[in-house]
């Protein structure tokens, strides 16, 4: 399949990204470069200087809302991508409304409890939609332990072990690998029908 054929196919699809931090911003950029039609990116956070070690933002964007900063960055990479930037906190009550139009949902949230909430809501509201979660992204090295596991419509990317802490921070290589694993899975699922 040529890149032109891939882009032609991908432009018909919408991907939801829950969170615009390390996983979400990098996954969104990879999907935009690949030619996805539309991204729905949801976050309520602001770009902080400490985010620049792994997230797709720049010095001059510190203090801006992440979803708007990401929309600007993606417009500088691929003008054909439609990015719906939703500056809100994801909660039980708004998951269905936020992601109903998405063909696939990428989970890119920070806290374990938030991940749990999103998985429960998506499984309830959209049992047929593929959900790709990031699990175990902290630290460095051990690249071979990063893998993809599938349970029905739920896909897990990461090592399922490395939790973020002061002694095991999230770093650009590991987070970037997992974010791109998530994007790679999106392409695999969407291009399967070709």
């Amino acid at each position: 399949m040529t890149f032109e054929e891939i882009k032609e196919h991908l432009k018909h699809f919408t991907v939801g990204i829950a969170g615009a931090g390390g996983l979400g911003s990098n996954c969104a950029v990879a999907l935009a470069r690949s030619g996805i039609g539309k991204l729905v990116v949801v976050d309520f956070d602001i770009v902080n200087e400490s985010n620049l070690n792994r997230q797709y933002y720049f010095y001059n964007q510190i203090g801006q809302y992440k979803v708007y900063a990401l929309k600007e960055n993606i417009s500088r990479i691929n003008r054909d991508v439609i990015l719906s930037a939703v500056n809100t906190k994801i909660e039980k009550t708004n998951v269905a409304q936020l992601f109903y139009e998405c063909d696939i949902i990428v989970e890119a949230l920070d806290k374990a409890e938030e991940k749990e909430m999103l998985i429960e809501c998506v499984t309830d509201d959209f049992p047929e939609k593929p959900l790709i979660i990031g699990l175990g992204v902290a630290g460095y090295g051990n690249t071979n332990s990063l893998k993809v596991k599938q349970i029905d419509n739920l896909y897990i990317c990461g090592d399922e072990k490395s939790e973020v802490s002061d002694e095991s921070p999230p770093l650009a290589p590991g987070v970037g690998i997992v974010a791109n694993m998530q994007a790679n899975l999106v392409l695999e699922i969407l291009l399967k029908s070709l």
């Binding site: 989970e107 949230l109 998985i119 349970i151 399922e160 072990k161 490395s162 939790e163 973020v164 999230p170």
Partner: peptide, 9 residues
């Protein structure tokens, strides 16, 4: 299936 959710994203 029991998936242990851990923080980081």
């Amino acid at each position: 299936d029991v998936i242990h959710l851990i923080s980081g994203g």
